[in-house]
Computed example of a mutant assay.
Amino acid sequence: MTSPTNNIAALLGSRICHDLVSPIGAISNGVELLQMSGDASGPEIELIHESVENANARIRFFRIAFGVASPQQVVGANEVRDILTSLTRNTRMEMDWQSAADHTRADVKLIFLLLQCFEAAMPWGGHITITHSGGTWQVSGTSDRMKIRAELWDALQNKNQNAEISASEVQFLLLPELLAMAGRSLQLEVSETGITARF
């Protein structure tokens, strides 16, 4: 049996996220039971609670960004906003999902991978706005300080370009492949204080 490399990566992403949901959910339930019983309180339990919430938000995000996305699957606008709100809670990053419509999981997957690219360029925080109009997605991000690796952003528009990519930058490898499979092209505007991407 043969599968494209990006499909294998998506299957692995789905499997890992699936296997992590149960133990993280169990920890969250355990913390809630301790708090309800009055047997535990204080900064230690609060730290565990916040860490579990953060882990859960990341798994929900990663499940879409790196998991399998079949053409018929749809993700609701409220679910997307909830994921992004949970993901950025207590951080210096703001993500404003402005589309009120539901969208295919394949489209949301592309946006989530693109958001990870933006996050890599905005390690000190910033504001990202996501809009959808007339069949075109636009993601715009601004920050007082940006960390732009030009070769990575160039690779998004030229998937054949060889750029050294670390594990934390795998989104720059996956996104152009998935855009090409979807028959879409990415338009980019990159400056010292902002990035705008459209497809």
Rank of each mutant, 00 (worst) to 15 (best):
I48R: 01
S37Q: 05
T193K: 14
L178E: 02
Q72Y: 02
R81M: 09
A163E: 00
A69Y: 03
G13W: 05
E169V: 03
M93E: 10
N56E: 15
V31F: 07
S14Q: 11
G76L: 05
I16V: 14
H18A: 14
I27S: 01
R145Y: 07
M1S: 12
A100I: 06
W124S: 06
P176H: 03
E192C: 10
V108R: 10
E53T: 00
H132G: 02
S70Q: 07
L156D: 02
M122I: 08
T131A: 09
I165V: 13
S41Y: 03
T5L: 13
E192N: 15
I64E: 02
S133N: 12
D102A: 15
P123T: 08
I45F: 00
D39A: 13
A10I: 03
A101H: 02
S133H: 12
S185K: 11
A106L: 02
D144N: 13
R58G: 00
I111Q: 03
G141F: 07
T91H: 06
I148K: 04
L115P: 01
L173W: 10
V21P: 00
V139W: 00
G38N: 04
E94L: 04
Q116D: 11
I111S: 02
S140R: 14
L33T: 04
A9T: 04
H49T: 13
I45C: 00
D144A: 11
T196V: 15
L188E: 03
A182H: 07
S86P: 02
I59E: 04
E192I: 08
F61P: 04
I83Q: 01
S70K: 11
P71K: 09
K159C: 04
T88L: 03
I83K: 02
M122Y: 08
M36C: 12
E164D: 11
I59L: 15
V139G: 00
R198C: 07
L110H: 01
D96A: 08
N78H: 05
G30M: 05
S166P: 00
S86H: 07
G126S: 06
A26H: 09
D102R: 09
F172R: 04
M36V: 11
H49C: 10
E192R: 15
L174T: 01
Q187C: 05
G135T: 07
T88A: 03
G25T: 09
V68M: 08
P176S: 04
T2L: 13
K147R: 13
